[in-house]
Every structure is written in C-alpha cells, then in structure tokens.
Design a protein around this nucleic acid. Structure first.
Lengths: 226, 226, 226, 226
DNA sequence: GATTAAACGAGACGGTACGTCGAGTCTTTCG
DNA sequence: CGAAAGACTCGACGTACCGTCTCGTTTAATC
C-alpha cells in the first residue's frame, strides 16, 4: 500500500508504514500504542470469514471474535466494513508482479493466469464485486479501492506495455494522451474479461482459454508476431 | 426470459408469461389468484429503491411500503432479496436488441453504447455486481441470473456473429466446439470490459472509447475490414 | 348449553338445537346446509390442540387443519378464538352432575373430586384461566362464559343446597336475597378454592384434601352434623 | 421479593436488590452496567399497558416504546412476556401486609378487602389469570410466580394464623404436617374465593360480602368467638 | 518509580431489518 | 350457496448486526 493518505481521525493501519514512520513520532505519542498483532489478526480473520461466509455473511462481530479482539477495536481503526475489506483484500494483490518472460505473449498468458488464480480464491470472489458495487455510490470507498487495487494493477499494464514497446512488439506511443487511453483500455479489457469469465460465466480461465484470449488481445493491439 | 423453469412452490412471477400459460390451467387453479398489479408495483418499487438507496440500502420492508403491498406478499413470491432483484433488473435487459446497421463495426459500437447506457442506470449499477458476488456462492441464484441476464445477452453475440459471418466480415466456423468457445470469449470480453470501464474505472464509455474498443475487438477477431 | 342466545350474524353451532330447529327451515334455506360433522370435528380438534399446545399455542389454522376443514369455515361460525374455546370447553362441564349420595358431606366430597378431575385435564387448564382473564375486558365473552360455564355450575350448588335443607342438614332460608347471596358465596368458595389449589398451588386435590376442605365448608355453613 | 435466586444468564432486575448486593460485586463486573432507570421505566410501562390493553393486547414493542427503551433491551433482560409480567405485577403485592387489628375477624376482613382492591386494579386482572394459565405448562414460569406472588402471600396467612393462635382464637397445632396442610388450605380458600368472586362472578367483594365470607371462614376453622 | 493518556476487553444501549407466524378478510373454483 | 383453497393486509414475534456508549483494565511513554 504505497503513499496511502486515508481518513485522519481513525488512522488506518496501512497508513503507518510510510516514510513518516521512520522519521518517528515527532511530537511523541502518549498512551498505549496500537497493537500490530491485532491488525494482522483482524485482516487475516477478515479474509477467512470472507472465504467461508461470503460478503453478506461477513459480520464485524464475527471477525472480532475470530481475531480474539474486542469489537470496539475494529471500529476504532476502520470506518466501515467496506474499508476493512479493502485492506484485507489488498494484500492479495501483492502477488501480482510482472513476469518478464521475454515475449509479450508469454507475459500476457502468465499474468492472465495469475489474475485468474487470484480471482479463484473465495475471499477475493466474495469481496471484490461487492466492493465495486458499493464503490459506485461511495466516493471515499472508490478512492480507497483505486489506491489499493486499481492503481497497482494498472501499473503492471503500464510496465508490461513499455517493455513490449522497447522490444518492438508493440508500436511506439504517438502522444501521451493516446498512450494513457491505450493503457486504460488494455487494463479494462484484461481485468474485466477475466473477472467476467470467472465470476459471471463461472468457468475457470484454463490455459486454453488464456491462449485464445491472449491471441485476441495481441491481434487487437496490432502486436508484431500476432 | 425464455421458457423459464424456476422453483415450483413459490412460483416466481416471470415464469408464468410463457406459451405454456395459455394452454395451461388444466384442472383450473383453486383459491384466490395472485395479483399481477402487485407484481408490477413490486418490481418497479425495487428498481426505484435500488436506484435511490443502492444495494445495501435496499430493504424488503421499504420495497413493500413503496409498492403498497404487505411485506408477507414479498416473501410469498420470492425466496430472497437476491431473486427479487434479479427479476427487477432483468426487465432492463429487454432493451438490448441486435441493431443490424449493416456492418459489424457499426453494430458493435451500437451494442457497446447501449450496454454502457444500461450500466449507467443507478439501479443496474447497484444490483448487478452485488448479484454477481452473491451468485459466486449460491448456485440457484447463479442459475436465475444466467436465465434472466446472461443467456439473452449472449444470444445477441451469437446472432451478431452469425450475421457478420454471412456478410463475410468474420471467418466461418471451423467446428462447433470452437465456435462456442469463440462466442463465450467474445461475450466475456465485451460484457466484462464495458462493466469494468463503467463500474471500476468509473468513467463513461463515450463514443471515442467505444470506437477504440471496437477497433481492438475487430482486429482481435480478424475481421475483414479491420 | 341451555336456551342459548348468542350473536346473530354467525349462528353459533350450539344455538341450533332449539325450538326453531324442530320447526324446521320454515322459509326453506337455500344452498348447501352447514355440516354438523364439521362442528363436532372442530370442537374436538380445539380441545385436543388446547391440551397439547396450551392457550397461547392454539391457532385457528392448526385447528382447521386438524379438523380437516377450511379456515374460512371457522370464521364463518365463531367470531373469535375465545368464543370457539368457550364452546369447546363447555362440553366438559356436562359431566358435572349432582351426585345425591344421601348426605351433604358425601355429595360435597364427590363434587369437589369431580371438579378437581375436570380441572386436571390439560385442555381445561389451558383454556379456563385464559378465558377468565380475557373475560374481564370483554363483556360479550363474559356473558358467553356465564351461560356456558358459570350458570350450569351454580345450578348444582343451588340444587345441592336445597336438597340439604330439605334433609335438615342446612338451616332454611330466611329471605330470598340472603339465599341468593348464600348460593353465590358457596359457589365462589368451592370453585375458587379448588381452582386455586389445582392451578396456582399446583397440587392435586386428593381425597384427604377434599375431606379437609369439606369439613371447613360444613362447619362454615353451620351444617347439622359438622 | 425475598432473597430471590433466579436465572443467571439474563439476570432479572428484581434479583439484585438484596443484602448480598452491597457485599457482593466480588471480582468486579465488566462492561457497561445495566441501567436501573430502564428497569423502572419498563416495569411501569408494562403495568400501564396491561391496564389499558389487557393481556392479549400487551406487546413488547408497545412496552418498549412507552418506556423509551429499545426493544432489544427487553429481550436482553427477560426471557418472555410472561416473566416480564410477573416482575411487573409482583410489585403490586408488596402492599399486602398483615394488619394486626387485634382480632382474627378484623384482620381477616381487612386482608380480604385489601386483596380485593388489589384484584380490582386492571393491570392485576389482566395479568394474573393469564400467568396462572401459562404457568400450568411452564415450570420455570411457575417457579417465578411462586417466588414473586405465592410465597409472600402465603407468608401472610402463616403469620396471621400464628398470631390468632397466640391470642387463643384458633386451636394450637397438633403436628407440623397438619399445620402446613392447614395453612395451604386457608391460603387456597381465601385467595381462590376472592379471585373467583372478582374475576369470574365479576362482582366486587364489598364489606357485606367480606363479612359473610369471614364468618364462613371463622366457623369453618373452629375459631373461638365465631 | 509514579503519572498519565490512550488502547483494550467487555458488554449494555438505541436502532433497523430480517424472516416467520397468526389473525382476519377477500376472491377464486368446485360440489 | 356453502365449502375448500389460497392470496391478501396487518402487526407482533424473537434474532442478528450495526455503530455508539460506558465501564474497568492494561500498557507504554513521559515525567
């Protein structure tokens, strides 16, 4: 979770691991510090509960019990069930890294596979679409989702596209605005299609499907060896 | 909603409007028949409430009050908030028809536009992703979604693709299995990408974006004039 | 149920065995006549349900099902759950007859025993006090209770006292008003005490207790051989 | 309510006001303490609602609203409408004290009068018989009634009888078992008869009736001056 | 080492929605 | 036209969570 900003009153846990942290509590906080163990236990408990009970079955009371923590502690740190879920699920996206296997096709198939496996996890299935749905009405939540999920994922697209361009597999940018639109389009296409395949159509994106989809994508982008 | 089947005990309203209906009442139903006015009022109230309050704000008590109907009447006809929402939202998808503007590109851009406008409606935004999320855990709900939303939509893809093939814009089928996989892929790509653009990225798919996406798709499918 | 009067609109079943009945449907009733089988089945079902489920567990739906009768039929014949219960329980009081064993003490002990056994039946326990409680607020119900339960029971006291007077066991009346007050007092004392013993104290009025109580009563009334 | 015991999990309010209380809180209670204001408001609201609406009209929702308390608070403290009613009505019985007017007859007439006036209160009429009826099926409720209503009332009989014996108005005990049976008989007779007079016969026990009944009782018990 | 401020566990509180049940009423078709 | 069937309105039920609040109890950092 990079350069997080977040609400001020109840400082969310993810926000503490920034540069300001090493510079240390400047004025010097008094009183008992928050337990980091509790944070970890809560987020883990949230993921487990999401996986077992689904979004609607997720209750803060249950999370608190499972994490061995008082209910109050949850409310002190997160403003809502939604923000807690974002933080809990965000960690799953850390596994998504750029493979760099030498060719755009290989990288693409690998990324699609990784994303599909991520979406196959029940805690991700339970949380993602529910958060997206609520995000449509709640700007603060939308920002938090963007920060925790969208931006890091889109960065992958940005990097992978640049690498392919430097290898001559994709045509170079014409102008900055067009490049940005291109990145957004690619991102929406990959993420949206895989999500839809997994969560709506309900079939796993096996390698054969990944191959087929990658072909469509490469041809669509005018890739060199397509 | 074609030849729907559905649970017998609480006969869902959408299930009755089939061919079997006119031929049906064999012995003649006993007891007071269900009010069709109520059905319409409930579904309309559900759509309005979804638009105003979002998914989590939607309560059956509120829907009942707004529809001028007793709360028990809702429970008699639908097994859950989810199934009610499916029926309420399904009607929105009736507007999605194949344009047939003469060229694959024109048809595609038109369909993308229509689907985007559909997703821009707050009731659709509120319900769709929430239903998909729950559908991941509930097979019965998933089936109902498939029947009411997925199948009709996919039919559009099937017909449009066939039309393009007959016009020579798309290569003919090699074998049946491959054709089916092709249709699924196209469907997931179009639906998933547009949904992701609207609900996650949060930007409207304006004509410029639609043109760009259509280009990607046509090239990806190896269309004739791409 | 003697010379019943009762509500006019839904003619209660007990009311049918009157003079008007033998005189027969004068104008000639139209349509299907009411089933007497249904009446008996309903009252029996009511008693059974009262015994098994208690007063608060008694539901008209359950009675109807058990009696093999439509719920509508119940509402057509009785105005409320309370009146149905009165009729159902009233039949139990038919067993209470004057023993006439030759002495006041023997008669008293016998009556106390019979009344105690009546109150030991679960259907009587369930219904009686609940009806009395509701009767405190509902004059119509109170009248019906009086007619079906109180008056016949009090008649026993009246007759038994007269018999004892004629045998010289009790002093003769001084005036009519005083006699009436005497009867009321005896009735309240016997009925109230036995009921309280069974339902509140919760112990069965065995013969030893009946003997003790009878002694108190005989002495209290200034009986000859007490 | 003397040295009450009561269920532990939902500690009923009346149970706390004992001598053990001041010495008690041993380990120190954790969590927010229960509001005593709420207790008082709830019991008062229950009595008022009973008086106005009767037993069947008494709903916990209404009591909660009238007491200015959340509905959940009621369920947290009492297991059922019945137990709440017992606690609400029990307070009325605190007024029943032994008069000690110097003679058994005077004491008896006074007690009968007080008891009659208590039963004339609509909240008592509404609750008492309904509770007795339910108590016939529910042992826990029966115990609670015994503790809150029966035992304190019977204590009056015990004391009054002892006082009369010490004054020589009643014969002394022969043995303990017989004395106990005597007390039970007197209690059932007084309470049962007055209740029946008020609630079933429906006429108020005025002084004339009280005198007549007292005479019966004194003669029945073999009192000295009868 | 004493003070002190904040985090913490526990649990009561006012709310809101849930899904179920029963009471009565109304509207059909069948006998 | 009565009876069976069943949908209808209404309102209470008891439960579950929510988010807030009040307690008494740690637990470190500061004094």
């Amino acid at each position: 979770m990079p350069e997080s900003s977040s609400t001020p009153t109840p400082p969310p846990p993810g926000a503490s691991a920034t540069a300001a942290d090493s510079a240390a509590p400047p004025g010097g906080r008094r009183g008992r510090p928050r337990s980091e163990r509790a944070d970890r236990a809560i987020l883990a408990a949230t993921r487990e509960a999401l996986g077992e009970l689904g979004w609607e079955g997720l209750s803060l009371a249950h999370v608190a019990t499972r994490a061995g923590v008082a209910r109050t502690t949850l409310y002190r740190r997160w403003n809502s069930k939604h923000e807690l879920a974002v933080d809990a699920v965000a960690a799953l996206f850390d596994d998504l890294e750029l493979p760099d296997l030498g060719s755009l096709r290989a990288d693409l198939e690998e990324v699609v596979g990784r994303f599909a496996r991520l979406l196959a996890r029940p805690e991700a299935q339970a949380a993602l679409y529910a958060l997206f749905a609520e995000g449509a009405r709640d700007a603060a939540l939308r920002a938090r989702i963007r920060e925790a999920v969208v931006t890091p994922t889109k960065t992958l697209v940005r990097k992978g596209r640049a690498a392919a361009q430097s290898r001559g597999e994709l045509p170079p940018d014409t102008d900055a605005a067009s490049a940005e639109a291109d990145i957004d389009l690619i991102y929406d296409t990959i993420a949206g299609t895989v999500e839809h395949r997994v969560l709506v159509t309900g079939e796993p994106p096996d390698p054969a499907w990944a191959h087929r989809f990658t072909t469509l994508l490469l041809q669509g982008l005018g890739a060199a060896g397509a």
